[in-house]
Design a protein around this nucleic acid. Structure first.
Lengths: 352, 352
DNA sequence: CTCCCCTCGGGAACCGGTTGCCATCGTGTT
DNA sequence: AACACGATGGCAACCGGTTCCCGAGGGGAG
């Protein structure tokens, strides 16, 4: 009868105090660990704690100012490989820094995002990390700016991770990666292999990630004095299905190209199967490249040449700078580099 | 000067009360919405709220018993496609039911898991969902049982989602899917195509998910009076690299088989590229099948025949039953069905 | 033997909310 | 015109902790 005698649910600190024959403050001190308590008292208290299976209510501690800090992150869909990696980085770093991690997926619904951020302000979250690209409209900037101000005035901070930055002066931390640079290098690589007409399977035209990659595509052409045929610049979204559909249509319309660069690896995957369905060999008949370097890129056949993006690092950095653990980085705008990883899906032109 | 005059951070309900010239209780009632308040007072209060940009502290509300409920889920790695889908299901349903969603990844570290569950008990989480397979050892059962009891005594509930169930009597909700049945159906399909020697690329031998799939593999053979060669039963883990390595070794050792069934699509992906690297045609020279039906299975070449698992539904169901929203399901052990989806990676034997 | 200081533990205020209970005020009713 | 009753809103207790402040012993030093 000495082991456990808890019956139903949460006991309070006063229950423990009563059972140990001390006051609540003493229990708090024993559990806190620093204040001097005689070992006899400590033993009695600890025993009562064990008997009652007591755990202090974290919410109450939080209200008293000694809670576990919390951090929130918001993304469109945890299912996408690149988002998942950012999420992973965020979660790892948050845990390392002793923070709890709240997550919210918006499925692209702006309203959800706004509401969730407001909830996080109420939760007194240490920071809110918005993950993933977005259309960069006036409305976006104003809305996001409002969220940033709101959070800032509550002592929290908004972090934009792979998202378009706001104007200057917004209380925001921005962590981006070099979309344009990566695309530039990738397309340069493709052009170097002798391709003249390279099809670009882009994303939504108001999406900054898509825009950056598109700019890289264009810039790489111009740098070699080429002027890409506008007909080769297609727009869709970042899904596998979009790549599949776009590729099929391009083939059906008889578009003339020897290489295709997809805005993401997912798009490339869809495009690849469309190519295969059409009986085309990659890279024999047409070359293909992606973007993101998701783990599966290696297992497509042929293995996909793509651009590596340090997604996990991006997530880690987001929480680290948000939590202000790197005083050396006073700058609130970080840009991470990307690099192309050459595999087997792009070949020299005119060479099966 | 009438717009905003908040200066630094969180204002309390008493600040609002003072500014509106009422008591804190009145503010609380205005914000609560139900209690009768004259419209003049309401207006004054609302205005003070807006001026101060006030948001009630969610932790304080929680302590007072009117907070937003919270639910936690734990997984090994959010990066795996099937885990990500379960996570997605959990998050969606949690949001739909008005719960906040805390997440923790363990990277396979049991200690993290135990500590996190203890934290969740302190947080008074409505439920804790453990996602993903595990080794089913005595130690596992005891440890998990302890977590379940601990949570239950705090009025919370442990949910095992795709995890080995505990013995009877544990205060636990278990949501599983039919690993064995799916594998049985898949292997039966392969055997029906005339294959006699089918290589099985399994997972860790103490991992229940792996065990279930392996049982299905064996049962399908036995049902046709076949006795699979033990040499064809390989063990690794559920990663792409494991599939790649195992396949390479099998090829190097000159193992005799005409089809290979992988324990997961990831494993299958690795195996597929190993096959390709060896110059083998799939399904011409050897057939291949996977398990999980991750989105990418379609984009492998050839498109992968696999078993569909309703991962997202699994996650949704986990939270729904945990939160007790389906009184009709009194049963605390659900088993979801799986079904094979036939694509192009397994062919009839002796038929290029 | 007394004095002082240090150790230990209790009471109460506080964190930021909610809500039961009660006093007040205005107005409709007889 | 007096009474009753409903609409309002304040006081204080409470949720479950933490911590400041202070008093009560006990032991060592003078």
């Amino acid at each position: 009868m000495t082991r456990k005698s808890e019956d139903a649910g949460r006991s309070t600190i006063r229950d423990v105090a009563a059972r140990a024959g001390v006051s609540a403050s003493t229990v708090s001190r024993v559990l806190g660990g620093v204040y001097p308590v005689s070992s006899a008292t400590r033993t009695r208290v600890m025993r009562a704690v064990r008997d009652l299976d007591y755990v202090a209510d974290a919410r109450a501690k939080a209200v008293a100012g000694v809670g576990t800090p919390t951090l929130a992150f918001v993304l469109e869909d945890i299912t996408g490989p690149s988002f998942a990696h950012m999420a992973h980085g965020v979660e790892r770093e948050a845990r390392r820094l002793g923070h709890l991690c709240l997550v919210c997926t918006t499925e692209g619904d702006v309203q959800h995002e706004v509401e969730f951020v407001e909830m996080m302000r109420a939760q007194r979250a240490a920071a809110v990390i918005l993950v993933g690209g977005s259309a960069d409209t006036i409305e976006y900037r104003e809305r996001t700016r409002r969220m940033a101000d709101s959070l800032a005035s509550a002592g929290s901070r908004l972090v934009l991770c792979g998202r378009p930055p706001l104007g200057p002066g917004a209380p925001v931390t921005v962590i981006e990666y070099d979309n344009e640079g990566g695309a530039y290098a990738l397309v340069a690589h493709v052009l170097t292999q002798g391709h003249q007409r390279v099809l670009f399977l882009g994303g939504a035209s108001d999406h900054t990630t898509a825009q950056g990659r598109e700019r890289g595509y264009l810039a790489a052409h111009r740098a070699r004095g080429l002027d890409p045929d506008p007909a080769l610049l297609l727009h869709g979204d970042f899904t596998r299905d979009s790549g599949h559909r776009l590729m099929r249509e391009a083939l059906k319309e008889g578009l003339d190209f020897t290489a295709v660069v997809a805005a993401t690896d997912m798009v490339a995957a869809g495009a690849l199967t469309a190519l295969h369905e059409a009986g085309l060999d990659v890279p024999g008949d047409v070359s293909l490249a992606g973007y993101d370097d998701i783990p599966f890129a290696r297992d497509l056949h042929p293995a996909l040449t793509t651009v590596h993006v340090p997604y996990e690092e991006l997530g880690r950095l987001a929480v680290r700078t948000a939590l202000g653990r790197t005083p050396e980085t006073t700058d609130d705008h970080l840009l991470l580099g990307t690099h192309v990883v050459v595999r087997d899906s792009v070949g020299r032109v005119g060479q099966a």
